[in-house]
Design a protein around this nucleic acid. Structure first.
Lengths: 175, 175, 175, 175
DNA sequence: TTTT
DNA sequence: TTTT
């Protein structure tokens, strides 16, 4: 394919505290539930209306998981940038089911706290995990960014129902 | 909620011709299946890998439906800008199911053809449906844009130094 | 050109109150100065660093001008979506000069208040100007959105299985 | 500042072949001139109108510089994702001047070829420079991404007039 | 089911 | 200076 783009940008509030889990080999995975709302006035009745959309955000990026864990809680306002991903799974009856999530996984992923009721103060800015101390020698000491983008392996996170990390996290799964 | 954003940006190819349907009162709805792909080289084996993500795009915007119908087909490369929306429905057994789609519906929605194998030539650009110019009185005759989401006349604003509004605001200045 | 995209997304704080001007024929134009900041830790010294970028935002969209005037002030945090535009002008000595601005002008333009020190409370959301009361008859009474860029009614499209348009398209369904 | 976002997304065509320069210590810097166009029909005269906007894109990211050098030429259609940056410089008479550019520098930067008349075939996808795999230890062998984002030092590129690389490239300049 |  |  001659180049493609898969990008989701959300600004909204967390409906619950982040859920952090760990893979068998210790890498963190965070799940966020984020609400975005649209409000408008009914053209006929003049009534004020609101519709809320809920998004599941899955963070495989280690640095951003830390940001989520340390700074975010129910009510926090966040800016999120990730990619759409649909995951197939089987329900109890063995039927195929699909879940679409916003995945933050290094490349062009961002998590930025913007305040909100859940805001305990302070600020955080995320991009990815190589702030984590990757020691890359090509960084010139600059926007090294405790929160800049870096690629990571994909894990079978946020598996629904019976769930678990059924996908081998050491698999070579692309972004 | 103090303002939220729900935006999806895709560049990819159509896996099939657009499907156009009509509501009972005649408004068109188009469905697109768009593929985005990521390719990378396996760090260990050096092998070339690819993963494709499929997206369902639903267009409620009349102008963009026309664009889809007239210009797009299987293989077309498109730029799409819309919002994430999860729809709840019941399967045959009455169980709740959810489908997440990228919805193009006026506000900040865009559909732009970028070429691709399915490209029969020509170009198209979409924004929203009140182009065509159906009577909106607040348009100042300008970038009316058969494909704008609420076009407006441009003015010579923010002119620096000597400044002033030197550009005639009634000029036909595009966006 | 076979389709092009020119989009700027900013989340930042106002460095000053919005400046509102009016054209000779009465249309408002608002100017915002928005700061975005990057912080990082110097890789060598461990020192915390920060760099601030200042952006000039020009709003030609009447509805968004109102939002700016009523809700924004120095310190407000905003989400802005517009387009890059470079304007040519002459300085006193007659030399050509260029200024690049982020222009909000209907199509795919957004201004959303996200809070911030300047936040007097309340929320605002902008999209375009025909909320302003354009009385367009093609809106189906729905997400008419005093702040949409071309809102449309939502339909129960792409309903899966048994599907059909089970949602009443004349319902007041938001975007 | 409690988190900010500075993002530019462009889809357009190169007005000229990329210009590649090198800093004194050998790092590449690429300059692109990209055109985006809007077309519309004049509401009054029905005449077809077009306005083209020109953007200067500066790439400090080594991997993306390679992409630009190898795959792009005059006429190529590209998807670009970067940040707005305004640079101050002095003209011959010593007056302060400002230039605003779209900077691609690791974090959340992307350069993707989409075809176009200048397309010699093949595809390229960029993100940043730690692809190639230079020793990052935190990559799990996956979407390592010969084209994923990684931070880099900033250089005094695209200095205008008398220009040159007057900014010390080893300075600790943030993104 | 697309594309390279 | 691109592209349609």
């Amino acid at each position: 394919m001659a180049g493609s783009v898969n990008k989701v940008i959300l600004v909204g509030n967390l409906g619950a505290d982040p859920e952090i889990r760990r893979t068998q080999d210790g890498r963190p995975i965070a799940n966020l539930r984020i609400a975005t709302s649209e409000t408008w006035r009914d053209k006929n009745t003049g009534e004020r209306k609101e519709k809320t959309e809920w998004h599941t955000v899955v963070i495989f990026n280690e640095g951003l998981c830390k940001v989520a864990e340390q700074y975010l809680k129910k009510g926090s306002t966040v800016y999120v940038e990730g990619a759409l991903q649909t995951r197939k799974w089987q329900d109890q009856s063995g039927q195929d089911r699909y879940s679409t999530e916003v995945v933050l996984q290094g490349f062009n992923s961002t998590l930025t706290m913007l305040g909100g009721r859940g805001d305990g103060g302070g600020a955080s800015r995320g991009g990815s995990d190589f702030g984590g101390g990757y020691g890359g020698g090509d960084d010139y000491g600059s926007p090294s960014a405790p929160a800049r983008g870096g690629a990571q392996s994909r894990g079978g996170a946020s598996a629904p129902p019976s769930g678990g990390f059924s996908r081998d996290l050491d698999d070579d799964i692309p972004f």
